[in-house]
């Protein structure tokens, strides 16, 4: 319990480059959330455009208008998908970079933690929880905020382009966001592996000597 409390407390009190990079991670997660939430329903709306038109039993002119709307939704969806993947890529790099910096900076504390009586296992779990909680909390917040922003944007877009209201239901139950989060957590396995190796290879007394 103390281990978890301590890890969470440390997240808000980082220093150096980590403090600058954490907002970058948040922005990346936010943008990923926005674009993912826009891309999925727009693409689905484009795919379902004809179905909507048929279902509404409309005239030829209205079918033409529906076709235009379908094109517009498709373009919107495709751009959002492209942006979503680009930001996701930047976000992945940010997760990797932030976590490796975080490990580097926290390694200075490893010697102290060892000297005050922590075992290597306890040190690992402290750093792991800090890393994991910081990255996942940021991503979850970013994705949730992104979904909210995307919802508001889509409502405006639906009204402007007279797209069927029903496409909002295509936003799904956050499946796309969960996939993003899953991908980010998979990426986190790399720094966690790095942390494990560094802890196994480092002699804490050397870290203490470096600080002299």
């Amino acid at each position: 319990m103390f281990l978890m409390q301590n890890a969470l407390r440390n997240i808000g009190r980082q220093r150096g480059r980590y403090r600058v990079l954490m907002p970058l991670l948040l922005v990346c997660a936010l943008l990923t959330g926005v674009f993912t939430s826009v891309a999925v329903p727009c693409r689905m709306a484009a795919d379902r455009g004809s179905t909507y038109a048929e279902a509404l039993d409309v005239t030829d002119e209205e079918v033409l208008a529906a076709s235009e709307r379908e094109d517009r939704a498709r373009r919107l969806g495709e751009s959002a998908t492209l942006l979503s993947f680009s930001v996701l890529l930047v976000g992945a790099v940010a997760v990797l970079y932030v976590s490796s910096i975080m490990i580097g900076e926290r390694m200075f504390d490893v010697g102290i933690l060892y000297a005050v009586g922590l075992s290597r296992g306890q040190i690992f779990w402290t750093l792991f929880l800090e890393l994991f909680a910081a990255c996942t909390a940021t991503l979850v917040c970013g994705l949730a905020a992104g979904r909210m922003i995307a919802g508001a944007y889509l409502r405006r877009e639906i009204a402007a382009a007279r797209l069927p209201e029903g496409i909002l239901s295509c936003m799904g139950g956050g499946v796309a966001e969960m996939l993003c989060l899953g991908a980010a957590l998979l990426i986190l396995l790399i720094p966690i592996g790095k942390l494990t190796v560094r802890l196994m290879r480092t002699n804490p007394t050397d870290l203490l000597a470096e600080r002299k």
């Binding site: 440390n10 009190r13 220093r15 504390d109 102290i112 600080r211």
Partner: peptide, 13 residues
Amino acid sequence: SFVFQSFNLIPTM
């Protein structure tokens, strides 16, 4: 327990 030359306090705490 240890006391070191460079204090070794955790700076964020």
